[in-house]
Each structure stands twice: as structure tokens, then as C-alpha cells.
């Protein structure tokens, strides 16, 4: 279990090792407070969708999963993507309702990037990796929450660095996105160092 958690947060960091969800990562990292909000939203969405998808996969989709209604030969795993995305979409909509109700300022600050989590590759990737790696439902919970934390950690650290960078005397052409890409690269380099720790 701890290996999965460790991998989810650090070595297999969705943002910095797999470069998943990078569009949102770059777009919503101007302010630390907004990044923090989005990070928490991603942890919740990931922490719920991965286990739910794991359950659906185990009970309904996987080859032989339907033996409990007497149809052991049916394999619905080809429906994986559409089912996972459906669950993610519903979860994100719920998230929107919750934020709009309880943290309206964050809801506004996230703007279109909140609904865009629906098609965020980090979120779908979390569920697909779970299937690929054959995690059991309990492991899926750890992986879901862990990978959410990992992504949140990456964007929060990145936003904090970007806030500082605003006062740095960077060459004209590197201000803004140019510098952001370089920082992402350096952070990814740093995270790859955790790979050594894992062995």
C-alpha cells in the first residue's frame, strides 16, 4: 500500500512524470490560492472517481465480471472509456454545484477550467492506469487519492514558484509561458529524482 501511495504522489506523479493535465496545470497556476483550490478539487474528483470506476470495472466491465448474473462469458471492458468519462463528468458537475454554492470566489476564479476537468487527461489517466495496473478496489482508493495529491502538490508548488517569478528579472521573451515551461521541466527533473528513492 505505501509503495502505491508513494508512487502515486511522487515517482508516478501524473503532472510531472507523465505530463498529464498540463493544460490546466499551466493555465490555473498564476495564483497560489486558485491553484490550491483546484488542487483540492482534483484530489476530491480523483479520490472519488478512481474507486468508483474501479468498482464498476470489477463488478460490471472486466472479462467474467458479470458471472454474478450468470453471464460469465460476456466482456464489457471495451465500454471502459465511455463509462469512466460518464462517471467523471457527473462528479465534476457535482463539484461545480458544490463550489458555486460554498466557495463562489473559487468557482469564478477557476472559470472554464473547472468543467474542463471532465476531459482532463490526468483524471481519466488515473482511472485507466488503475485498470492497467490491475489494482484491487482498496488499492484503487489509495491510488486515486494519492495521484490526486500528487497532481495537487505539483500545481501548488508550481504556482508558488510562478508567484515568486513575477518579481524576477527574466529576459523579456521568457516572461509568462516561456518561463513556466522551463520551470515545469526543472520540476519534472526534480521529481524524477524520487525514482531513485523508490528502489
Amino acid at each position: 500500500m505505501t509503495e502505491i501511495l508513494f508512487a502515486a504522489i511522487l515517482t508516478d506523479n501524473l503532472a510531472l512524470s507523465f505530463f498529464l493535465g498540463i493544460c490546466t496545470f499551466l493555465a490555473v497556476s498564476q495564483r497560489l490560492s486558485t491553484a490550491l483550490g483546484l488542487g483540492i478539487a482534483v484530489i476530491v474528483v480523483q479520490g472519488v472517481t478512481v474507486p468508483v470506476n474501479a468498482l464498476i470495472h470489477a463488478v460490471l466491465l472486466a472479462p467474467g465480471a458479470l458471472h454474478w448474473i450468470g453471464l460469465p462469458e460476456i466482456d464489457l471492458s471495451f465500454l471502459r472509456i465511455i463509462v469512466f468519462i460518464g462517471v467523471i463528468a457527473a462528479m465534476v458537475q457535482l463539484m461545480e454545484l458544490l463550489l458555486d454554492r460554498f466557495v463562489p470566489a473559487l468557482h469564478r476564479a477557476l472559470g472554464v477550467f473547472l468543467p474542463l476537468i471532465t476531459v482532463n487527461c490526468a483524471i481519466l489517466g488515473g482511472s485507466l492506469f488503475m485498470v492497467e495496473r490491475r489494482y484491487d478496489p482498496l488499492e484503487a482508493v489509495v491510488w486515486g487519492i494519492g495521484s490526486g495529491i500528487g497532481w495537487a502538490l505539483a500545481i501548488i508548488a508550481f504556482a508558488a514558484i510562478r508567484e515568486r517569478l513575477r518579481y524576477a528579472d527574466m529576459p523579456e521573451g521568457l516572461r509568462g509561458l516561456g518561463g513556466a515551461f522551463i520551470v515545469t521541466g526543472l520540476m519534472s527533473l526534480g521529481f524524477s529524482g524520487f525514482g531513485g528513492l523508490a528502489q
Binding site: I56, L76, L79, V83, G86, A90
Partner: peptide, 18 residues
């Protein structure tokens, strides 16, 4: 058939929850 039933049920369940 199982696929269709599954998808329809899932969409209905998610919409109801929302």
C-alpha cells in the same frame, strides 16, 4: 444487450444523482 442496458442504467443513475 448487456452493454446497452449497462450504459443506459449508468446514465440514468448519474443524472438522478445530479
Amino acid at each position: 444487450l448487456a452493454g446497452v442496458v449497462l450504459l443506459v442504467t449508468l446514465v440514468l443513475a448519474l443524472s438522478t444523482a445530479l
